[in-house]
Structures are given as C-alpha cells and as structure tokens.
Simulated assay, not measured.
Amino acid sequence: MVDIHSFLTEYKKRVDERLVAFISALDITEKLKESMLYSIKAGGKRLRPILLIAVTEACGGAFDKAMAPGLSLEMLHTYSLIHDDLPAMDDDDLRRGLPTNHKRYGEATAILAGDALLTLAFQCLAEAPGLNDEQKIALVGKLARAAGPEGMVGGQMDDIDAEGKTLDIRALEHIHLRKTGRLLEYAVEAGAIIAEADADVRRKLAAFARHLGIAFQIKDDLLDIEGEEAVIGKRVGGDAERHKNTYPGLLTVEGAKRELERHYQSALAALEAANVSSDVLAALTRYIIIRER
C-alpha cells in the first residue's frame, strides 16, 4: 500500500523548493517578483506537477528529467488562478486562505504577475535539462494547446458564456474537459513523453487522464457545495451565486457522486490496461476523489 499523504508531502516539498528558487533567482523588478512569489508560496497541492513526475517514474523515467516540466506546469496553473480571481472573472477575495493577488497587489500587478508566470513557464520548459530537442518541442506544443484556446482558455470562455444558461451533461463535460481536464491530461502525456513510453502505453494513459480530469472537476463542484471554507481556503457556494453549470446542479449531489465513482473506476481500469507501475498513480487517483480541498 502506498502512503499517499507522505508521498504528496515529500514531492510537494521538492516542487515548492525548486519553484521558489527558480523565481527568486530572476533579475526582475522586485514588486513583480514579490507578486509572483506571493501566489506561488500561497500553497496549493501541486497535484499537476506531482502527477507529471509520478507518470514519468511509473513509465520508468527519471525524476530529475521531470522536475523542470513539472515546475513549468505549476507556473502556468498559478497564472490561471491569478487571472481567474480578477474582478472581471470570478471576483474572488480569497485563494488558498489568503487574499487574492489583486487584493494584495492591485489589479495591474496581478495581471502582470500572471502574464510573467505564463511566459516563464515556457522558458522553463524550453530550457529543461536532460530532455532532447524533440521532447522539448513536443512538450512546448502540447502545453500550448492544453492551455490555450483549444484547451483551458477556450473552456473558461465557454464556461463564462454558459452562466445563466442550462446545459446538458454532454455540453458541461465538453467545457470541463478543456477548462480543467486538458492540463491534467497534459501532465500524464508529458510524463509518458519524458519517459519515452511507447505509443500503446501513451494511448491507454490518455484514457486514464481523461477520466481523471472529469473526476477532478466533479469533486471540485461537490466541494463548492459540501466543502468547508476554512479547509478549502476560498468561499464556498460561488458557483451557485454566479449561476454556473455544475455536475451537482445538473445531476443532483447524489447523481454527481455516482458520476464521480463511474469516472474513478474507469480511470483505474485504463491505468491497469496501460501496464505501468501503477500503485502511486492509483493512490493519487483515489486521493483526488476523496480530498477535502
């Protein structure tokens, strides 16, 4: 049995230390650096980089080769959170139990800090040690697609446009596959690329990642209803206030929990079919559906 909490604590510590060191070493305006580090240091589970590293190791790849791509992914994720919290978007005051970046530094600095983290993510990836040029090109292209108009950004736009409308479950899933799922899918695919896994393994891991991404979003939707603000680190009930389409809203809370279990079991089946060293990945998948924040 994998002690997933010890694993997450250890890998989070490694990612945190490298993230802070990477950004602290930049020769840039101090206020911009401070704003970037504020959101980086605010906490977070680091699930995306940890997933990327875990997949790399499960496929026989080296931890050291996965670290820079993992840092890159977390920088990009943090940029998205800074921008999501802005008044023009979700207008949130709290993130991870602290005032949001724009509340602490003002909107202009928060926007620039997000922009800086986004572009720095690609610099970090392009300069990743231990990867060959072919791997770097593949990872840069796939991250851009996962984060851009065909992925996270496009999903966020459609999510905003859907506020106040009633979607069916297929339309909602399509939004969340891009808004949330694509970066998780990228984490899995990137790990397989770094480890040089064969095409069949990569295809089966892609199916695993797809179900994992939907399960992650369903759990987020449930936490917005059932979670505790002190644990989550942000207000609950925001989805309902903004009239967002959610899995509990369309399926009821119990229906959403059944759908969560279905995607969880499908993710485990796809992971088993991939025939990789899957104990850690299975434990990570379980953690995602039972987490409290």
Results as ranks from 00 to 15, higher is better:
164 G>Q: 13
151 G>E: 13
158 D>Y: 01
167 L>F: 15
141 G>I: 01
162 A>L: 05
141 G>E: 14
146 A>P: 08
154 G>W: 11
162 A>F: 10
140 V>M: 04
162 A>R: 04
156 Q>M: 09
148 G>S: 01
147 A>Y: 10
159 D>R: 04
147 A>H: 14
147 A>D: 13
169 I>T: 14
170 R>W: 12
165 K>Y: 13
143 L>E: 05
167 L>S: 05
139 L>G: 01
139 L>Y: 07
164 G>N: 13
146 A>D: 07
168 D>S: 03
150 E>S: 04
149 P>H: 11
166 T>N: 05
135 Q>T: 09
154 G>P: 03
151 G>S: 04
138 A>V: 10
169 I>R: 14
137 I>A: 10
137 I>R: 10
142 K>E: 12
157 M>Y: 15
158 D>E: 04
152 M>Y: 14
156 Q>F: 05
171 A>C: 07
134 E>M: 01
153 V>T: 08
148 G>R: 00
140 V>C: 05
136 K>M: 11
136 K>L: 08
172 L>Q: 12
148 G>W: 04
163 E>S: 02
143 L>S: 09
150 E>P: 00
156 Q>A: 08
146 A>N: 12
155 G>R: 03
171 A>D: 15
166 T>D: 10
142 K>L: 09
159 D>F: 01
157 M>T: 11
134 E>P: 00
161 D>W: 09
168 D>T: 01
167 L>A: 10
167 L>Q: 15
172 L>T: 11
171 A>T: 11
135 Q>L: 03
167 L>R: 11
143 L>T: 05
141 G>S: 07
138 A>Q: 15
170 R>P: 00
149 P>C: 01
171 A>E: 15
145 R>E: 13
139 L>D: 07
